[in-house]
Design a binder for these strands. Structure first.
Lengths: 334, 334
DNA sequence: ATGAAAGCGCTAACAT
DNA sequence: ATGTTAGCGCTTTCAT
């Protein structure tokens, strides 16, 4: 067994309260401190966190629930979360949303069980309003990632998907494009809907009318993008295609090229996310960079503020995305 | 405050021992059980895990330490770890190696502190023998990921990097290639060295002599692969290039194409990992698929076996990789 | 089958 | 500044 605070007290000829005090930065006579330090060193003592958690009713762990840890989107966010959490003295435990849904478990149980002090909840899916309400009412320190403040009673953080696409449209418009198509993402994904919203707003702000015929839905995969783009090419003419993410943009480019058309000479294509695919495929794709790491970082910072009582109010943070211009866009051919 | 076992006992007109017994599947009279169940439901009771951890000296958490959570390699592994751990009733906490190194903390402290029951340690770097020894001696349940049993006193799991490249060489040889070059990875990465070993062994087993002039080192990045391949093209002739991973293979292809040479007509190129880049760039890259998810899955299964005493012995598991043939390789032109 | 009591390792009054 | 004591919520003998 590991040594306890009592073993230290005995060896240092003092009481466990004094050792505890020393450990927690309280006032201790220098000579006693020395003896305690020595005992700790000799016995290689480490405080038992579970005893501490029990008595303090504070775990110093942040729970993170996401759809799928292996998704590149999340892995960047998770890295930011983990790094910053540890700076603040917290440890992170990760849960997958799928497992929780399956077992019909309630995330809020994590608080009751003493597993976590705070929770970061991330999902691509549009959230269930009832669930949001349930969580908001609970009063526990929880922050949502990837949800654009659909419920103002909770704290959330996301990037501004709408503005990201507006920037893209303005850029394309500046290149002379007028017939701009949109390969929208799945309608059950909130970011996909927000990007569509950005498409419509961006078009209008440029004095262009979004043509329903030029909007087609696909999933966020390369294959889906390929298929949908082929349909789009069959039914209409356009000079630019705004895709809902980099994966389907990659598929779109392949579809366009497979018909002997060139990107960007004949059709310009844009993506979203700035994933690895956008950077290294040919042509490299003009896209919108999501600050994944910062997203995680700020989420934790904010959560810690909430947990430690500095920020009682609910806030919705919206990070500004950055357009990354590569060679998949060119002047409008007509 | 959350209700405790005592609140349940009171409401159910029994003692906390009986409630505890009920909770842990012990024998309880049916009528008592009913009353306890009802009390639990009414009070929405959830057992406090920290009290339980303290008394049982068992956390049900698996710690995972990796270089960088956001690395695609790890994110797949982590997903496997997380999923299977939760099946076994464990929760995962993730630590980044960097933070630990910086603070000079010892992973083994996690055990002493009662943070974890077991640890999965992953790194690309060649491990410090002293550290390995230290860990081996500790006797704690620890399993290494991504290390090919460099120390037989610890348990480890990895894919067979050597065999993966041997398979590639044999495949290229079957296509008629004789002058085969190797873009090796960084020499401080153990997998890079093993892949080089596979290259040498594979060549010999095909009756080919590995030419030192045809082996060049680069980091595992696209840019690094690009630069190194240009150097290689300047100094020698070859018909196939075996790259240490998909990223540098992607850079290699770009370098080759930038000189007006074609892949695979003039030079065949292979990668390693089966990352997203191998699948969606042009041409798609023939590579070796690492079973990331399975790696994590098996690591956990094995760790649980160790923790629960089923497997006292130290074992080194080597998973067989699978070659994925795409269009970056063709018949040798000469 | 059930309850009383001790104890897991720690913190925090409280008294000295 | 230090020690005594109670208690955090739970499990587990040991009686009954």
């Amino acid at each position: 067994m590991s040594p306890t605070i009592i073993d230290i007290a005995k060896m240092a000829n003092t009481s466990k309260s004094t050792v505890s005090r020393y450990l927690n930065g309280g006032k201790v006579r220098a000579s006693t401190a020395k003896r305690i330090e020595e005992a700790i060193r000799k016995l290689k003592y480490k405080p038992n966190v579970n005893a501490r958690r029990l008595v303090l009713n504070k775990t110093n762990v942040i729970g993170v629930v996401v759809d799928d840890i292996s998704n590149i989107y999340y892995s960047g966010v998770l890295a930011g979360i983990q790094a910053v959490a540890s700076q603040y003295g917290y440890v992170c435990t990760f849960y997958s949303r799928a497992a929780y849904k399956k077992d019909e478990k309630d995330y809020l149980d994590l608080f009751k069980e003493g597993q976590v002090d705070g929770l970061i909840l991330g999902t691509f899916q549009i959230r269930d309003p009832e669930e949001m309400e349930h969580i908001a009412e609970s009063g526990y320190p929880i922050i949502f990632i990837g949800d654009n403040a659909s419920n103002s009673a909770v704290s959330s953080i996301d990037i501004d998907n709408v503005q990201g696409v507006i920037d893209i449209i303005k850029y394309l418009h500046s290149l002379g494009h007028k017939r701009i198509a949109h390969l929208r993402g799945p309608s059950n994904m909130s970011a996909a809907n927000l990007r569509l919203e950005g498409f419509v707003k961006g078009m209008k702000s440029c004095g262009l009318e979004p043509d329903p015929e030029l909007i087609i839905e696909s999933d966020w995969t390369v294959e889906g993008g390929y298929t949908a783009t082929n349909k789009l090419l069959d039914r209409a003419k356009f000079t630019a295609l705004v895709c809902s993410n980099d994966y389907c943009a990659n598929g779109a480019i392949k579809a366009i090229q497979s018909r002997g058309l060139r990107v960007p000479e004949d059709i310009s294509v844009t993506g979203f996310d700035n994933s690895i695919l956008a950077e290294y495929t040919s042509p490299p794709i003009t896209t919108v960079k999501q600050p994944f790491y910062d997203l995680g970082k700020i989420a934790v910072k904010h959560l810690v503020d909430i947990m430690e009582g500095d920020i009682p109010l609910k806030t919705a943070i919206l990070l500004q995305p950055i357009m990354v211009i590569r060679s998949s866009c060119g002047k409008a051919p007509w």
